[in-house]
């Protein structure tokens, strides 16, 4: 990984809320096309981390750069899959998926083609005319994934997107996500507290500490090929390694 050129650089990122230090001097690089998982205990500030990285919240110190430029929604193509349900209830699945392209001013034929492709890849084509209240929670997250991937973002940030799903739905969506990522090779930062999920999905795992949050350790998973088998001895070993790292959170 070190031979690759970093696509996104997070440098000395800190966030304080008055006297409360939430993020404390976090620095790391993300490489082009990498799937990076950030794991941390509940309440350590993972959502704050996502909001600061995407600039939804201003940082107290530090910088997030894409290439050499500070990250900017207008200039860079950023997608964010939120922890909470984020489908716009008044838009159909189709219209939800196309919103990013619509905002970025893509021509209608290109929007149609891209949305059609991503709906196909995520298995949502039969539901394209449905409203979010007519589909399950799992499908709503698929819509959020499709909406995020369709713009082919420079950076895709996912904040515990499957936390509210049951195990079988989660596995199914995780598999869809991996397939989609393998096809598109977009740069993903996936934030979660689920260690198995992190080992199952990512190429590299960053383990965060309790507040004030720092990076505690980094674990490489890129040698495990997809689709991964959770009973595979190497998978089990890595999961145990990450578990040991987080045991004293």
């Amino acid at each position: 990984m070190s031979a690759k050129k970093p696509k996104i650089t997070i440098k000395n990122l800190s966030k304080y809320f008055d006297d409360l230090v939430v993020l404390d001097d976090i620095s790391f690089d993300i490489y082009d096309g990498e799937f990076l998982c950030v794991v941390g205990p509940t309440g350590c500030g993972k959502t704050t981390f996502c909001n600061v990285v995407t600039r939804l919240l201003p940082s107290t110190k530090g910088s997030v750069t894409v290439g050499a430029e500070a990250i900017d929604f207008k200039k860079h193509n950023v997608s964010f899959i939120f922890q909470e349900p984020s489908c716009l209830p008044w838009r159909t699945v189709w219209d939800n998926v196309k919103i990013g392209l619509e905002i970025k001013g893509y021509p209608e034929p290109e929007i149609r083609e891209r949305v059609q492709n991503v709906l196909e890849m995520t298995g949502l084509t039969p539901f394209k005319d449905f409203f979010p209240n007519q589909i399950s929670a799992g499908m709503k997250q698929r819509v959020a994934i499709a909406r995020a991937f369709v713009t082919e973002p420079d950076m895709l940030l996912m904040d515990e997107p499957f936390g509210q799903l049951d195990t079988s739905t989660r596995f199914s969506i995780e598999n869809s996500l991996v397939r989609l990522w393998e096809k598109t090779k977009q740069t993903v930062i996936f934030v979660t507290h689920n260690l198995e999920e992190a080992v199952y999905l990512s190429e590299r795992i960053l383990v965060l500490t309790q507040k004030p949050t720092k990076i505690k350790s980094e674990v490489g998973v890129q040698h495990l090929l997809h689709p991964r088998d959770i009973a595979d001895p190497e998978f089990v070993r890595i999961r145990r390694q990450v578990t040991d790292l987080v045991r004293w959170w």
């Binding site: 950023v78 964010f80 909470e84 984020s86 919103i99 905002i103 970025k104 909406r147």
Partner: peptide, 21 residues
């Protein structure tokens, strides 16, 4: 606010957010 943020991260203008969100 999540609906507003969905549009914001895609770089939506204030006018778009008012009209479409």
């Amino acid at each position: 606010p999540v609906h507003v943020n969905v549009a914001k991260v895609f770089g939506a203008s204030r006018s778009y957010i008012i009209r479409k969100i």
